[in-house]
Design a protein around this nucleic acid. Structure first.
Lengths: 335, 335
DNA sequence: TGTTAGCACTTGGGCATGTTGAGTGCTAAG
DNA sequence: CTTAGCACTCAACATGCCCAAGTGCTAACA
C-alpha cells in the first residue's frame, strides 16, 4: 500500500472524527472523501494504521478513533494551517482598539481566543525583561510590615507585603525609598539582581538589614510576581464540548485552577518562535489532562498564550487562531 | 396533623435527600428517623406538604424531593447552624498566619472555603472606604497615555491607564503628581470625590484639563476598581458534586466567569450583618443558576464572601462555614 | 379528629431475550 | 496491490417481563 494514501486515510479519519465525534468506519470514509479506492482497501490500510498505533477501535465492530500518536502525526506531518475567516480577522483586529493597559489587553485576549476556538484560553503575563524601573514605593502597613510596590514603565505594577522582622520607622523607610529610587530608576528589571546589592551597600549601616530585606522584595517582584500569573477564560466551553461525552471535566478544572500546574505546562512546551506547539493527551505531564490537548505559542518576549481543549479538537483551525492572536498580541505590546 | 411534626417531616426529607441524592419515601423516612408514627401517617403529612408546594414527586411512584420553597422554609425556620468540627476550626485559624497582604489573604480564604464546603467559593474584594490615600503615582507610558496608581495604607494598590487625549509632558505630570499628593495624602478614599475638584482648581490653568482627567482616574480607582473584583476557587467541585447528576454545569460556569453577574448577585443579597443570606434555585436573578444556591454574608465593611453550589446542599454546615470564615476575615482585615 | 393497617394501583429500573446494522477480517479472484 | 464477497462480532435498540418501592384510599381504631 502506498505511503501517501496511508497518511491520507489517517487525515480523513481525524477530520471525520473531530467533526462527528463518532468512530469512523471504512465505508463512510470512502463515501465522504473521494479516495479512489474501495472500502476493502481502506480496511487493509486501517489495519496497518492500527498496528502502528495511530488509530484504535473502541470495540470489535466499531469504526476507528485516532490515538494520541495519531493526532501527533496529524499535526506534525499532515495538517496544514487553515486560514482564518474574515470575521475572525476582524475580531482580532478590534483587539487593537481600546486602552493599552496590560491587564485590559490580556483580559480581552483570553476572551477573544476562547470565543474563536470554543475552548479554554490561557495567557501568561508578559515577561518584562526589557521593562525599566519607573518608580519604587515603600508603604508602612504595620510596625513590622512594609508594602513594596514596583512600577515599570510598561505600566505593569507589582506589589508585595514583606515582613521586616523588626520595627521600622517611617523616616528610615523614606530615606531608603529615595536611595533606592535614585539608584535604580531607569534600570532594566532584568538587571535588578546585579544592581540591588550595590544599592544596599550604599545605605547607612544601621539600615543595612532592612535595605537587604526590601531589596529582596523588589527583586522577587521583578522576576516572578508578574510572569508567574496566568489569566484564563472560557471554562464554560469545557462543559459544552463534553455534553454527551462523559470526559471527566473535574480533573481538568483542577489543573486550570492550579496556576502552578498551568505555568509549568506552558513553560515546558517548546518555544518555537514562529510555530505553535501542541501537547496531546498523555503527552501532558499532568495526569488530569490525559484526555486534553494544549495548543500554545510564545508572544512578546517569551510568555505564552494558548488554549486547552479535548484531544478531539480541530487542530488546524485552533492552531491558526492561537498563532494569529499571539502575533497581534506581540504587535500591540511591542508598540 | 400537628404543625411541629409537619416541619419535622420536611426536615427529615431535606436531610435524607441531601445525604442520599435520591427521592425519599415514607417508609424509609420512619426507619431512619424515629418519628413516633407509622409510614401511613407520614404519607398523609407528605400529601399536605406537596399540596403546599414544599416537596414534589419526580414521578408517580417515587419518593419526594424538596422544592426550592421547601429548602427556603428549611433554612428559614427549621435548620440550626451546625457547629464546625475541630479540624475545621483549626484550618480557619491557620488563615491568621502568614503575611497580611490583602490579595494573599483573599486567595487563601477562597481556597479554604471551597475545601471546607466542597463548593465553589467566591469572595469580593473588601470595601476600602476607611482606607487612606498613601501615595499617588502618574507614569507616562506613551505621549498620550498615563498610568495612574493609587496606593492605600491598607496595602491595596489600584492602577489604571487613562488616555489624556493630548500629548503630555513629563514635567507637567510631575508637577501634578506633587500637587495631588500634597493635597490628598491621608485623605479617606471615600472622600476623594469631594476633595479632588478643589485640587484640580488649584492647578495651573493650562493643566486644568489634564488634572481633571487624572482626577477622574483616581476617583474611579477609589470607588470601583477594587470593590468590583471577585476571586473564586473550587470550580472543580462543580464537576464532582454533579457526577451522575447531569445538572448542566455549563451555565453555572458561564455565570461564574461573568464577574458582573456574580457581583450583582452578591450585592443583591441582603446584608444582615450577623446572619448568612441564602438564595435558592430560581430565587436567583440569573437563569443559569436556576438549580444552584448561593450562601453568602458580608465581612469587613460590607463586601461579600460566600459559596455557590447545587440546590441540594448541606445548608446548615455550609452556612456555618461561610459565617465562620467571614468572621475571621473581618477580624484579620480589621486588625 | 388524628392515626393506623391493609390493599390495590402505578411506575421506573433491572434483566433476559431477540433483532438490526455497522463494521471488521479473511479469502480468493482479478 | 486491489477488490468483491461473505461470515462473524458486537453495541445499540427494542420488547416484554417482573419486582420493589412508593403512593392514595378506605375502613377500622383510639
Amino acid at each position: 500500500m502506498s505511503e501517501p494514501r496511508k497518511l491520507e486515510v489517517l487525515r480523513a479519519i481525524v477530520e471525520d472524527y473531530v467533526h462527528s465525534r463518532e468512530p469512523v468506519g471504512s465505508k463512510a470514509l470512502v463515501e465522504r472523501h473521494h479516495l479512489g479506492v474501495s472500502s476493502a482497501t481502506i480496511r487493509n490500510d486501517m489495519a496497518v494504521l492500527e498496528e502502528e498505533g495511530l488509530i484504535a477501535a473502541p470495540h470489535t465492530s466499531a469504526g476507528r478513533i485516532p490515538t494520541d500518536k495519531g493526532y501527533r502525526l496529524f499535526v506534525d506531518r499532515i495538517s496544514q494551517v487553515k486560514p482564518l475567516s474574515a470575521a475572525e480577522r476582524r475580531a482580532i483586529h478590534s483587539l487593537l482598539e481600546g486602552p493599552d493597559d496590560v491587564d485590559d489587553i490580556l483580559e480581552r485576549t483570553v476572551r477573544l481566543l476562547s470565543q474563536l476556538t470554543n475552548q479554554v484560553a490561557v495567557v501568561q503575563y508578559p515577561h518584562s525583561n526589557r521593562a525599566l524601573v519607573r518608580h519604587v514605593e515603600f508603604v508602612l502597613l504595620a510596625p513590622q510590615q512594609v508594602l513594596v510596590v514596583l512600577i515599570a514603565d510598561t505600566g505593569s505594577v507589582g506589589q508585595k507585603v514583606i515582613d521586616a522582622g523588626t520595627d521600622v520607622s517611617n523616616e528610615a523607610l523614606m530615606l531608603l525609598r529615595s536611595r533606592f529610587l535614585g539608584n535604580i530608576a531607569g534600570t532594566q528589571l532584568a538587571l535588578l539582581p546585579q544592581v540591588l546589592p550595590s544599592v544596599v551597600a550604599l545605605c547607612p549601616p544601621e539600615l543595612r538589614g532592612l535595605a537587604q530585606t526590601l531589596a529582596q522584595g523588589l527583586q522577587s517582584l521583578s522576576d516572578t510576581s508578574r510572569e508567574e500569573r496566568i489569566l484564563m477564560a472560557g471554562t464554560a466551553n469545557l462543559a459544552r464540548s463534553n455534553v454527551d461525552f462523559p470526559l471527566s471535566i473535574g480533573p481538568v478544572l483542577e489543573a486550570l485552577e492550579e496556576q502552578v500546574v498551568m505555568l509549568r505546562l506552558l513553560s515546558d512546551m517548546g518555544d518555537d518562535p514562529r510555530g505553535v506547539t501542541v501537547s496531546i493527551g498523555r503527552e501532558n505531564p499532568y495526569d488530569g489532562l490525559a484526555e486534553a490537548s494544549v495548543v500554545a505559542t510564545g508572544y512578546g518576549s517569551g510568555a505564552k498564550v494558548g488554549i486547552l481543549g479535548p484531544t478531539r479538537m480541530d487542530y488546524p483551525t485552533t492552531m491558526a487562531a492561537v498563532r494569529a492572536v499571539a502575533r497581534y498580541l506581540s504587535r500591540i505590546l511591542g508598540a
